[in-house]
Design a binder for these strands. Sequence first.
DNA 1: CCGATTTAATCCATTTAATGGACTTAATAT
DNA 2: ATATTAAGTCCATTAAATGGATTAAATCGG
Lengths: 413, 413
Amino acid sequence: MTQAVRHDSMRARNLGVVLAEVRRSGPVTRAALAEITGLTKTTVSKLVADLLEAGMVAETGAASRGERGRPGTALALSGERVAALGLEVNVDYLSACVVDLTLSVRLRRTQAVDNRAASPVETLDNVRRLAREAVDEARSLGLVIAGSTLAVPGPVDDGLVHSAPNLGWRDVRVGDLLDDLLAPPAPPVRGGPSPQDPAATAPPPLLTVDNEANLAALGELWFGSGRRDFLHVSGEIGVGAGLVVDGALFRGAHGLAGELGHVIVSPDGPPCRCGGRGCLEQYAGQEALLRAAGAGTVEELVGRLRGGDIAALAACERAGHALGLALTSAVHLFDPGTIVLGGVFAPLFPWISGPVRETTAARLTAIRDAVPELAVSRLGADAATLGAAGQVIHRIVADPVAHLAAGGAPAPR
Amino acid sequence: MTQAVRHDSMRARNLGVVLAEVRRSGPVTRAALAEITGLTKTTVSKLVADLLEAGMVAETGAASRGERGRPGTALALSGERVAALGLEVNVDYLSACVVDLTLSVRLRRTQAVDNRAASPVETLDNVRRLAREAVDEARSLGLVIAGSTLAVPGPVDDGLVHSAPNLGWRDVRVGDLLDDLLAPPAPPVRGGPSPQDPAATAPPPLLTVDNEANLAALGELWFGSGRRDFLHVSGEIGVGAGLVVDGALFRGAHGLAGELGHVIVSPDGPPCRCGGRGCLEQYAGQEALLRAAGAGTVEELVGRLRGGDIAALAACERAGHALGLALTSAVHLFDPGTIVLGGVFAPLFPWISGPVRETTAARLTAIRDAVPELAVSRLGADAATLGAAGQVIHRIVADPVAHLAAGGAPAPR
DNA sequence: CCGATTTAATCCATTTAATGGACTTAATAT
DNA sequence: ATATTAAGTCCATTAAATGGATTAAATCGG
């Protein structure tokens, strides 16, 4: 249900609107913000004052437009204080990044480790260590980590990882395991009657967990080549897809949407672990592709393709055709604006994009004005980690008050 | 961009919240509304007073809960005043219905006419006549028609029908042609300084136009067996699908989402008018199905099936299998809660549902906890017309002020 | 059967946050 | 140097919600 608006939520909303507009319109003056949002100059000034105090926006000097009249002071997002931590567990690595409010990446860390061999608890201990280091380093840069998202390769429901087959995880509850991570360095003494009222609303969770394919799509949206409406294909061991519509992720009724890997390419094709036959994964999944090309790793495959290896080229051709067929079905159903190929398909793009384009074009042009453009991901393996951090930033911008209420960032002094 | 909230929009929003809650919770007291919405009793009382005056809710007597304390007065949506007109142009009929705020159907009219033979202007003239009759009759029931939606069998963009191949329409602009239809019977004299200020915001369009498959899905949501998250398959000449997620229609980047008919069932199957091969439409479209069964009409086919005709049964079996394959892909991508079969598939449900269920179950159970339930549409051919009217009602409930501002329904006297 | 209790709804003074116009400030144009 | 223009702030006002007190209409208990 849509929530009722009260005085405080009106203000909260307007703070979010102003902050989002500052992000959208680059450096803007208060007057321009008033014009755009429809609020009065007075109101905008008051809201901006709060955002300045919270360290979320900063004045970046005079905005002289060459016209006459008093020049305004330009406002822009400030990357000095508020930041978010993005984390990722994948099959053979852990990674972390810290992103500030302007979506600048302030630091990255990656750690190669075989997480299939380790238990979930061990792996999460490693994540915690990595995250702790990143948080400490971010603090030394003067940043306050406002929240964190962890990307895992499998469907997630409210902090519970249902199954991550490639990690060997099943029903792992992650939320609690990392919950104390972001506690402030000197936690306020509990027990004594706190001076502020003990806010009736619980603070938002500091750590959320989400599916890696979804977060990679969001990473592409905020840091890469995605533009409001696109389908991001993240071929790893499986083949997943994240659909972004109007800047928001499409998740489906149970959060399982986007399983492109099991779209049917040929109903009587090779059997698949899902119980079906002829799923895309059997043609264009990493394993199938490497097997068909006779290569051991993606790097090796790329090397062979560069060398003009016939078998490798033929394997890519076939995989691209299959991917094109699955994407044809996906386009008919989703009607995306663009298709972005990421994951293993990114390095293979030069060889795979041709067959994909041919196949989709042949089957789409007759009944659609515009066949979705095919683009390559610019992010590679970082997409999910960046998307994880970006999601936190996005939430803060949409509702800065929730962040402030959670003890976010009062003016330091 | 999310809009800034001001005092007036806060009130508008809260009116909508209260009205939506009255609809959702059946008869409720003011006190219960205050509890649910988080607003105070005082505020709820004031909002309810406005809604009562506008004739949108009505007091339906005392709500004695058998407990002690003063019993509240029950409030419910009122179907006495505000209503909406749903219109549909299809290949061989026109239809209209009037639905009141409680979603009760107050009147229906259908007119058999071959619209392929007529020009768009002629057809729209007929629509106008039908609509005029319906509006007049509704007025005689004391209803005020607050708006109207027209369903057409093809993609629509802001009043412009891009193409409706089965009608022979191409780029027909419908909005203007019917725009004067809903003007009040005695239009207020223009020119003289009107007593109210000439509201800066333009009134919402009285007539909107939308795709028939989309509206059928919404019809199913509001009047049929749809439940918040489902995929509605509306097999007519083509095979379309409307996806409802969280009570809202999914449209895609260009409004072309849900083209289930061209999802690939077999990549080397029979050629399709879309330029591809093996699209679902070639297996389960009305034409293909009737041809395979050797029947001329759906009624004839149903008759044969009832009689146990082997060829007809086999044709349904094959069509059901193909539909199951396409739905498997759709489930992997959309992750719907339920699948509702409508259009021609509704009368064929007893024969087609078995093969569909078998095919989807075989390919989904291994990697999904829940295979979407398969249901039959309860609405039949009325779905789109009802959805069209329901859409108008839905908009009014979400934002009653826009309706009131547009001269909706001041208290009659 | 009457008073106590309980819950519904309204009344009224108060609070919050936005508005709108006047005012101040800092530029360019003449 | 002065006029003009636009940005930003100040302040009294207004819209709409809040919270507590009050009135209304039931049931419960003796």
